[in-house]
Amino acid sequence: MSILVNKDTKVIVQGITGTQASFHVKRSLDYGTQIVGGVTPGKGGTTHLDLPVFDTVKEAVAETGANVSVMFVPARFVKDAVKEAVEGELDLAVCIADGVPIKDMLEIKSMLKGSKTKLIGPNTPGIITPGEARLGVSPENIHRPGRIGVVSRSSSLTYEAVIEINRAGLGQSTVVGLGDDTLIGMDFVETLEQFMADKDTEAVVMIGQLGGTFEEAGAGYYKNLCDKNKKPVIGFVAGNAVPFGHKMGYAGDIITKGHVTAQDKMDAMADAGMIVVNNINAIHTELQKLFSAGC
């Protein structure tokens, strides 16, 4: 088991004919991901990488039975692509592009409200269930099947977390990159919920990022869980060396919430009972402590 995607997930690729999409779709196919088709408006009826290409998500879903999409469309077309995913009633859409305008994201978030579609990203490496399915651009060769979940708001540190799990001699159940952008689809709360319910995940590594209060919300959810549903979470947030007032990320955060530092976030996570490390390379030692009996 795993969360969100596995070997039975039928995946379509929106924007399949692009260069970057082609490179990564090929790798995902080689990895064993069940990619069943692609969508590129105007290229319906053709094939690409031996996969059928459709004009719309709806057609692709009708023909292939896909329930998940991964989007390789450029940022300016993301809003339309999400609209299609919602209309196609997909369960999940994973958006790789970075640079989606904030206004488009506001519209996307209201489109998603009340629909059955969940969005991961934008600006995410995607999601991978090692040995089963790879949706996105993550380096598949660093992943190993196992029982530790990863959820991260920092794309680059997602990989570091995976490497740390490997160093501890363990592997990953599912690795979810929530995305680096100002506004994102799924958040820590929704992802932690899934990990806590997944019987094959025994612990979770949670990587936060400066900006917003997503980590605090995740910590709040975790704190209120009853003990029998609680699995250990190892948390890390980078950014303590950033001087106060240095412009990083979204300036509006400061006047909306007051200055929220990496330390504030880590304090909230520790207060909720998570195991917090202040060096990314300390994750593996904490994991070793947790699983010293082996698992």
Binding site: S152, R153, S154, S155, S156, L157, E160, D180, I207, Q209, L210, F236, A238, G239, N240, A241, V242, M248, G249, A262, N278, N279, I280
Partner: peptide, 10 residues
Amino acid sequence: GDGIALAAMD
């Protein structure tokens, strides 16, 4: 990536 930059800075 921002995250890796900040982690290195830390």
